[in-house]
Design a protein around this nucleic acid. Structure first.
Lengths: 176, 176
DNA sequence: GTATTTTGTTTGGCATACCTAACTTTTTTA
DNA sequence: TAAAAAAGTTAGGTATGCCAAACAAAATAC
């Protein structure tokens, strides 16, 4: 268990882009792939041949390009990682949208399946645990700028958190 | 602001290993570098020439190898990232030690400075905020295995957390 | 339906980064 | 100190992955 697909980062990027094009524009064309990846058209031809040889895309010269089931599976996995990483970076670490996206784009190729799964569970844990949740995440911004927690407010913060939870739990009971 | 060093992942690895060898065995020898990186000795010579040309290592054929101030700075930065990422993966996400190390080893080359800083601040936030802390992190394990929070215990968990904080705050007051 | 434009392919070249194997230098040992 | 071993270098080769530019096919326009 290393990187999962066994593909180079470059080829994984091609699959990801092809999936994206399939989802939006119906057909993936070499020109669009080149534009999205910022490479020349000639480079796309080479990559497609390589992907075709690995059974990941349906491709023949001058034909339309589609993902094979195998290629689609990998592409969806990469896309899932991309989205998950981007969300964690943007929503939790609160990195600006562009940096979050760019960093996710690089990390998606190097993170292993185990770590990715754990990160997503952790994201879920943060969001569902009453001790944390969105409001706790927001406070992280303050922690970042001030460099230190204002310890004096901790008691108050914790009490408010408990109160919110009880109110919420109470509200939920009413609905039962 | 992209990757910081502008070096390839490969060359960053060389710098990291050279720093490590300098710290432990005093002198970095090509043979040790090759072993640590899992490459042949011939590959090391090529990399050293490249690093020398960039002013990152002091190197001449058959000479000992040392990092220049510039190379040392980059090597320390990579090493710092490696340690930070490994700690986050191991201590927070609780990925097994080997996977954490291997994943950190790949991520260190693709994470940008901003995101890294945020991640470290977040690690600090988790550890210092009374609402979270080590005990909250431990509970993450349960969340992972059970797949769901046992909501019934939340009130109790939160109350205990508040009690612990007050006790701790009280203890601290006594010391003043 | 032919000419033009667009799109796709091919070719040759460059850079990285690795390998193997032959060779040289340095170090060790006898 | 001379032979043997170890360490380092060089040379030639492979694989990726990109580019630029010439070329071919397909699509569009007239």
């Amino acid at each position: 268990m290393k990187k999962g697909s066994g593909l180079s980062e470059s080829l994984e990027d091609y699959l990801e882009v092809i999936l994206d094009l399939e989802k939006t524009g119906k057909v993936a064309r070499a020109k669009d792939i080149a534009e999205k990846l910022g490479v020349q058209r000639g480079s796309v031809t080479g990559a497609l041949k390589s992907l075709e040889a690995k059974g990941l895309v349906n491709y023949a010269p001058y034909s339309y390009i589609t993902l094979t089931p195998k290629g689609g599976k990998i592409a969806r996995e990469i896309t899932r990682r991309h989205a998950g990483l981007r969300d964690f970076l943007y929503k939790v670490l609160q990195v600006d949208a562009e940096t979050a996206n760019a960093t996710a784009c690089r990390m998606e190729h190097v993170i292993d399946a185990t770590t990715m799964e754990r990160l997503m569970s952790f994201f879920d844990y943060i969001n569902t645990c009453p001790r944390t949740g969105p409001e706790w995440v927001e406070n992280f911004t303050a922690h970042c700028s001030s460099k230190r927690h204002d310890r004096g407010e901790c008691d108050q913060c914790l009490s408010a958190c408990l109160a919110r939870h009880r109110k919420k739990a109470g509200t939920m009971d009413e609905h039962e």
